[in-house]
Design a protein around this nucleic acid. Structure first.
Lengths: 136, 136
DNA sequence: GTAACTGCAAAATATTTGCATCCTT
DNA sequence: AAGGATGCAAATATTTTGCAGTTAC
């Protein structure tokens, strides 16, 4: 599915920056940070546009954020199951300590966790770090 | 163990700000962000000192960072098993969507994840969000 | 034509660094 | 006394907001 079709299916106006940013995600094997997009897009559009585009994509469920232990926020494409406001990224994320690439391990589903009495789970994220297959 | 003893055991100089910040962590039932510490300490010491103290504590393995999906970085006390540069927080973290308190669920250990061929795990974090026992 | 999107400027926040001074050991 | 820690100022970096101009539909 082309970027423009994706945008259309989410009822978003099809604009140059949105297509470009979406293309970057499709071209990337890993997750992207705001700074990555800024570099990759080579200042084709404003930094603010990137912020706003990412925010819109997250709200619509096109991309999701990945928690990281440092201050950076990473974004990656959501799969089909994601709906507006309701993400189901039930896969594990892997961050390579060496090359910093972040993978969505689609095949690795998040295991069940048994929470203590009184805690209600809405979402669960699993982030594994180590060395990826390209850096061994 | 008192804060000053902890500092001593990690070979850190015992200073007012370090004791105070360590006390805050012991008094808190959840994890703390830089901003929390700034508020709780009521400007008793400089914002920069907080940055530097947190960084030192992380390096020494006194506290660890908790990944979050927004840009905030959370810190929580490490348990005994943590050594310098080598953290073993093999427990699940829970962030309440309502009150934003972050719990270290010490009793809930991180389940095994089966990684694809070529990926080597060094660390794993599990962050569950939802509603905590005080907000139900 | 209208609503939505973008770019620019600027404000608000957050983080890092350098250096002189003070405190711990 | 010496090394390390702190406070202050300032440099950087990051994120948000407002508004006027432009573009998509």
């Amino acid at each position: 599915m082309h970027s423009s079709e994706i945008l259309k299916s989410y009822k978003l106006s099809i604009t140059e920056s949105r297509i470009q940013i979406l293309n970057l995600f499709h071209a990337s094997k890993g997750a992207l940070a705001h700074a990555d997009i800024e570099k990759l897009s080579a200042a084709m559009f404003d930094r603010v546009t990137i912020y706003r585009t990412l925010q819109t994509f997250v709200e619509k469920g096109i991309i999701h954020t990945i928690p990281t232990a440092d201050n950076s926020v990473l974004y990656a494409l959501c799969k089909d199951e994601c709906k507006e406001g309701h993400h189901h990224d039930n896969h594990v994320h892997f961050i390579c300590d060496n090359c910093s690439t972040t993978y969505c391990l689609e095949k690795v589903t998040i295991p069940q966790v048994q929470l203590p009495e009184g805690f209600v789970k809405k979402q669960a994220d699993v982030i594994v770090s180590g060395v990826c297959k390209n850096c061994i």
